[in-house]
């Protein structure tokens, strides 16, 4: 009798996880379906963009819509280069983004090193003061900044977009300082005793240690500059001076009247593709870096 109860007990204990497992699997199927539908909504507009860019005019205005055009034509991808200053747009965007991120990363990581590992008077107060400026929204600064650059004749050049960035990026400083707090101070003390100068400590010890974090931050910053629109629209007037984002916006403004959507979409795909490739290559580092910044931030 007692045995039986014991066995029955055992059975019920055993039986429960099985049914729960099953329930879990059914839930997972629903979740998977839900995520897949969401994913379709995420990519559909982008696929639509690519699809439009290779369509002929008849297919663009076909009802019901054609997802895979009967005539796939890449002619618009050849045409865009002569229809607007796309090439100079790409090179201008590259000049701004590369200069700012390379030099700005050096200044930012040096500052992060000082704020986290060197002792000096006012360290915390200076850091708080610097970081408080993040609170000031750009629209409040853009008018005086514009007048400032205008008075030294920098309007309609890339300099107003480049120069401020060279002084460093506060988010990068903040993030790297956080990252460096896990590096033991004893490493630095040991290097000092070995007679390393502070510059040597930075590039021989600190920089190699924070390289992964720096790389992720640099990529994010690069993307931000590449995709920036408000800064360029304020400063750049001549077509050949404009960055890529402005060039494609002007494509949109000029060719929408002629309903040349394949041309506009082709130019937009070209503007989108570089960052998409960068993201695909570095997605692991980028996603990790974002996740950390959110949890710690």
């Amino acid at each position: 009798m007692k045995m039986e109860v014991a066995i029955a007990d055992k059975k019920s204990i055993k039986a429960e996880p099985v049914s729960e497992k099953k329930r879990n699997r059914i839930t997972n199927i629903f979740v998977f379906a839900f995520l897949s539908i969401g994913a379709i909504f995420m990519v559909a507009p982008l696929l639509w963009m690519v699809s439009t860019s290779v369509k002929t005019k008849e297919d663009v205005f076909a009802l019901p819509p054609v997802w895979i055009p009967t005539d796939i034509s890449f002619s618009k991808y050849a045409e865009i280069w002569s229809m607007g200053p796309l090439l100079s747009g790409i090179s201008n965007s590259l000049i701004v983004a590369v200069t700012v991120t390379v030099i700005g990363t050096i200044t930012s990581s040096l500052a992060a090193f000082a704020f986290s590992k060197l002792k000096f008077r006012g360290r915390n107060n200076l850091f708080i003061l610097l970081f408080a400026s993040v609170m000031i929204p750009y629209p409040a600064l853009m008018i005086p900044q514009f007048m400032m650059f205008s008075s030294i004749g920098w309007v309609d050049s890339l300099l107003p977009l480049i120069v401020p960035g060279l002084f460093g990026n506060l988010f990068m400083i903040f993030f790297l300082r956080q990252y460096l707090s896990s590096v033991p101070n004893s490493i630095i003390e040991a290097a000092k005793i070995d007679g390393c100068s502070y510059f040597q400590i930075f590039y021989k010890i600190i920089f190699p240690l924070i390289k992964p974090a720096v790389a992720a931050q640099l990529i994010l910053w690069f993307m931000g500059i590449w995709n920036d629109y408000l800064g360029p629209i304020l400063y750049l007037n001549s077509p050949e001076k404009q960055t890529l984002q402005l060039v494609i916006a002007n494509f949109n403004a000029s060719y929408a009247i002629q309903s040349d959507y394949p041309l506009i979409m082709a130019a937009s795909v070209v503007a989108l593709l570089p960052m998409l490739i960068v993201f695909m290559v570095f997605q692991k580092q980028i996603i990790e870096s974002i996740a950390i910044s959110g949890v710690k931030g």
Partner: peptide
Amino acid sequence: FRVIYYIPVISSIAAISILWQWAYNGDYGL
């Protein structure tokens, strides 16, 4: 899934706006 959902985030806001302007077209938009 993580990558797919993240693609619009890294995409240029100008290009995305152009794309959605076309998608919102009253007659032929997606």
